[in-house]
């Protein structure tokens, strides 16, 4: 989709510029946009195809920026996708290019109150940074669910869930790293005399740094915890081993107590003694109960 909104922002010399929004554009729309903007079509296409390129390119007639915007996936808490958003400044136009509609763009770009171009870019970046924060929080909150399931877990599924959280936090961290680079590079382009812009830039930089610190901290925590998760699962399984070994010992006792009276050798009067069965079985039950009590006291017959 290609949409042009006239007089949406102000250039460096206060001239009004139009906003061209390209959302998942078709091949013909890309060609049309490239012709309107008078730039090579490959500039737009390569960004959409996700080819490796510099996040900030400055050329004679063009400035291009690219960063990733976290967008929540429907139906899954903590699930998200990073949508690459490219911004272009070309004479007469400000272009946004993405595969999905970025909802906050139309709120920030208001023809009634046109902003200066770098202010607009910084406001967009600040909004993107704010989007990272709840996404990172919702991912990190999943750790609590994993920890709750750890108590009973006998298999490594919880470890895999932890690894998945680790991967998602890494994706967010890489997105933030790119954004941090863009913000740092933008600093070179800002007009030195504009104190307001310098302040917005500094605020954005600090906010970004805080979000990154938080993601780093969450990731460091889960990195450290993952090994412990594996040990907790081991321990759960080891509890079963311990319980079962105790049970096997208890099941072995009847092999030698009644077994002693089952030998094919002369047993004296024992085979004719009327209470033989009761006495031996009673003794067996007594030994079993005593052993089970000792095991229970030592915690070998507990499963929790």
């Amino acid at each position: 989709m290609m949409r042009i909104t006239r007089d949406s922002l102000l250039s460096g010399n206060a001239n009004r510029r139009s906003w061209m929004a390209l959302v998942n554009p078709s091949a013909s729309e890309l060609t049309q946009a490239a012709a309107t903007l008078d730039i090579p079509e490959s500039f737009l296409r390569k960004r959409l195809e996700g080819e490796a390129s510099r996040p900030l390119i400055k050329q004679e007639r063009l400035i291009s920026l690219q960063f990733q915007v976290p967008m929540p996936k429907k139906g899954g808490t903590g699930q998200f996708m990073l949508v690459p958003l490219s911004l272009y400044f070309v004479p007469g136009y400000f272009v946004t290019l993405s595969e999905q509609e970025i909802p906050f763009l139309s709120q920030l770009i208001d023809p009634q109150k046109p902003r200066k171009r770098w202010e607009l870019v910084l406001r967009i970046i600040a909004e993107v940074t704010r989007n990272y924060l709840p996404t990172a929080r919702s991912v990190a909150r999943e750790m609590a669910v994993v920890e709750r399931d750890l108590r009973q877990a006998q298999r490594h599924d919880v470890v895999y869930r932890g690894l998945d959280i680790n991967d998602r936090l890494l994706t967010l961290d890489l997105g933030l790293l790119q954004l941090e680079y863009v913000v740092s590079e933008i600093g070179h382009f800002l007009p030195a005399e504009d104190a307001v812009l310098a302040e917005i830039h500094e605020d954005t930089r600090i906010e970004l740094s805080q979000v990154r610190d938080q993601v780093d901290s969450d990731q460091a925590t889960i990195n450290e915890l993952l090994e412990s998760y594996a040990y907790v699962v081991h321990n759960n399984v080891n509890h079963l081993f311990k319980f079962m070994a105790a049970l096997i010992i208890l099941a072995t006792i009847p092999l030698f107590i009644p077994g002693a009276v089952a030998m094919n050798v002369p047993l004296g009067n024992f085979p004719h003694w009327h209470y033989g069965f009761t006495v031996v079985t009673g003794g067996l039950v007594l030994v079993e109960m005593l052993t089970a009590w000792v095991f229970y006291r030592k915690g070998w017959l507990r499963l929790d």
């Binding site: 096997i248 099941a251 085979p271 009327h274 031996v280």
Partner: peptide
């Protein structure tokens, strides 16, 4: 292993050479 041990353990008293 525990399951295999159980029938042996429970049937052992009936192996005794007593009434």
């Amino acid at each position: 292993l525990a399951l295999l041990m159980m029938p042996i353990a429970f049937i052992m008293p009936w192996h005794m050479m007593t009434p």
